[in-house]
Each structure stands twice: as C-alpha cells, then as structure tokens.
Design a binder for these strands. Sequence first.
DNA 1: AGCGAAGGACGGATGACCAAACCTTTTCTC
DNA 2: GAGAAAAGGTTTGGTCATCCGTCCTTCGCT
Lengths: 248, 248
Amino acid sequence: MASPAEGRVPAGTLTPPEAVFARVRSQTAFEETVDQLGTAIKLGLLPAGSRLPPERELCARLGIARSTLRQALTALSQSGHVFATRGRHGGTFVSDPQPPAHPPSPDTLARWHETCDRRLAVELGVAVLAAERAQPADLDALDEVALALEDALEDFPAYRQADIRLHVGLAEATRSARLVREMTEVQGAMTDLISYIAHPPEILSSSNAQHRRLLAAVREGDSNRAAQEMTEHLKGTEHVLAGLLPGG
Amino acid sequence: MASPAEGRVPAGTLTPPEAVFARVRSQTAFEETVDQLGTAIKLGLLPAGSRLPPERELCARLGIARSTLRQALTALSQSGHVFATRGRHGGTFVSDPQPPAHPPSPDTLARWHETCDRRLAVELGVAVLAAERAQPADLDALDEVALALEDALEDFPAYRQADIRLHVGLAEATRSARLVREMTEVQGAMTDLISYIAHPPEILSSSNAQHRRLLAAVREGDSNRAAQEMTEHLKGTEHVLAGLLPGG
DNA sequence: AGCGAAGGACGGATGACCAAACCTTTTCTC
DNA sequence: GAGAAAAGGTTTGGTCATCCGTCCTTCGCT
C-alpha cells in the first residue's frame, strides 16, 4: 500500500469495519410506501374496516406524488389488503377480513437472529425512556391494553394484536417519533416470524406476567428494572424461536 | 365516517400513530454514499492517509454504478475529505489533515434530543448483546483501546477518536452487522453535536471510569450491569449537552 | 517501450417520480 | 331533478437519478 501518508494507521483499525463499504441500497418511494402502510395494516394500527385519508391528502402527508401513492395503493389492493370505492363518501378502506398472511420467506427465516437483535435494541431503549417519561395517562392506557391481553390467552390473533398495541404504546410514551417508527418496523418483522409458530396459553400467560412486571417498573420510573424485565421478556420469545427455527 | 365496516375499531386505537402516515423519504444512492463514506472518514474508521478500494471494486461492493460512486467521490473531494491520484498505484485517499468540521446546523441542534434517544437504544442493545457474545479476543482489543483513552485526557480529538473505536468495537463484538452500522451512524450524529463543546479532563476522566466498569461488566457477561453502566455513561454526556444546547 | 492499473469523461437507455389537468362515480342539498 | 361536492381513476409529458458501456489519460513497473 504505497499511500502518500504511510504508517499512521492506529493498531487495531487496520481493517475498517465491513459496514463502511456495505451495500448502500435505498428502497424506492413506492416500496417504502407499500411497506409502511402494509405494516401498519398488518399490525392492526390501521384497523380492518377503517378508512385511509383521501389520496390527495395522504400523498401530501407522505411527501410523495399522488401517482406514486396510487401505485402503492394499487399494490395493496391487488394483494387484498385494501379496497377502494368511488364517488362522494368513497375512499380507500382496509379490507375486513384481511387476506391470509404469506408464510415467511426463507430469507426472512435465515435472518431471524438479526431481527431479534434489532428488536432487543429498540425495545430496550423504549423501556428505559418510557420509564423516564411516561405520563399517568399513558400508563392508564397501557394498563387497559394489559387487561385485554389477560383475556386473550386462548385467541392468539387477538393476543398478538394487543401485544403490539402494548409495545407500540410504550414507544409512544417515549415521545420519540423515531422510536415509534422503529418499533412498528420491528414488530412487523417479528409478526412475520411469529405468526407461523404455536403459542400455547401457558407461554402467553407467563408472557403476561412479564408485561405486568414491566409496566410496574415503568410506572415507578425505575428504568434499570424496566430494562431488566424487558430483556427477560424478549429472551422468552427468543428461546421459543430458537427451538423452532433453523440455526437456533 | 360511513365506512363499509363500521364500529369495529378497538378503543384506544381510534387515532393511528402519526408514524403510520409520516413522510416516506428515501435518500438517493448518491446521498447515502456520501453519508456512509463521509461518516466513516469523520469517525476515523477510514484513517487519514488510507486508501479506498479502487472505484471499480468499490462500486460493486456498495451495489451502485461507478458513475454514481464517482459523483459521491467528487463531492467528498470537493469538500476536501479525500483526494485522488491517477496512474498506476494511484487511487483515492483520505486527506491528511482533514478539513475543519462545519459547525452543527441549526437543524441538527434542534433535534439533539432525538439523536440522544436513538443513541440510547443502539448503545443499550449493543451493551447487552456484547456482554452475551464478546469473545476474549474482542475484550483484549477493547481493553487496549481503553488504555489509549486513559492517555488522551488532555487531547480531545484523540480522546474522541479512541472513544469511537471503543463503542464501534463493542458493536462489532455483538457480531451484528446491523448494529455496527447503526452505531456508526449514531456516532456520526453525536460527533456533530459533541465537537463544538468543551471537554475538561475531569469529565473525560470520569467517563473513563465508566468505560472501565462497562468493560468489566461485559467481560463478566453480566448484561444487566452492562446495560446499567451504559445508561449511566450516556446520561453523563446527555447532561453535559443539556447544559449547553437550546431546549435542554 | 510498452503494459497494466488506476482515475476521468461521455452518451444513450431506462425507469422512478412528479405535476397538472381531466374523467367518472356517487351522494348530498336545494 | 339539477347541480355541487368529494372522492377515486386516467392520461400525458416532463425531469432527473441511475445504470451501462466505451473510451481516454496518467504513470509506475518491467
């Protein structure tokens, strides 16, 4: 290496992290829109039957052209996730019921470890910040969701739905838009992994106990304990996955 | 709301999170490349004087066309961060010395809170996973960096440089490419905030004590304590920022 | 002298995205 | 019943980022 300024490389940094030259691949606006809206629907953040804002308003909010938004909506309607009606009081609506979910792709399955790692980071950050910042009103809403969870031990779709609301709600309590967004992305990825494995009520029940302890720690503003409970909670689902997925 | 399927919206989800309709803005490949390489240079991951891979190889690694890469390299060379020499054994090199850094933009300053939140999540996740997964070789390398930190109390640029190597090294110890990438992004954002504020040796010294405790916890594989030490460490810099930046 | 490896420059093809206008359907109101 | 209003649906044309391939220029090594 005959570089002009030789021999100044500190030991240990001779090889730059691979991340430096990693693929820089930006999705198109179209793809991002499909993902964002599709995930919101999949997670129930946009409930079945609900109406999306009018296209002319929505494209402004998303910061894209109407034609681009329409491409995304066309894709979502072809996959059966939304449908549109014309005329006054028409609009684009979330289908009810939703089409059956696709089984996870081999690619998704192969990267499940990465997904869990990312989830750990997001959820841990959320737990700590929520413990510091959650307002009483937030906590009351979260408690209500926790109650719904207790009643859904036998109905996994309903359970998962409430579980998502709990985790996203916790993220909202941090008042960080970024964390809310990352939480929804991560929950979307987790849903892809989770939906195809069995969830006996006993596991959901112990998961609920962890939820309760987590919320208690958040209510007390004890961020260390919140982080601890969250770690334990996540390890639980991770162990379940490890037992059922390849390379566990 | 005269939707076809009325009255099915669960209480508490009547208003979908704003994140659902948030701007979906993808950077261009050109911008992402400038950011990725620029950040790596700014952080010293690509040390001053070092040579980048040949353009024909680099564009393949980054997954972009050569002309796009050249746009990015042109931008970086116009800003003085790199320069190119032609002919055999020529190449693109990181400038030495680097051009002076720009002062943080008002926009960056206004969002410093968001940056710190994101940092918390990434670093916390890294701390926990590093405690679980770090190999003895990783730990030895990290200890070496920690030693360099001790000797740099009076020289902030050198200190910061070693600090970055410590945090990125910790991320590498998690074996998660994603976390390494997020760590570099976050450190880049933090550098923008940090470089323009005073850092008395006493603060750096107490920061070093936290580094030592953190590494000890990681070495013992005690992820809870690692998370705790990391939280404390980050709160330190956050308090310093809060005292000096608007809206603290 | 010439070969080879590097950066540098050009030109066309493609596709994503945007902007603006216009059409069609439906329902509400007068 | 005749608009008016509010929604989705359609068309068109243009801009710009990006890709791909080709060729040129420089310059150290053999």
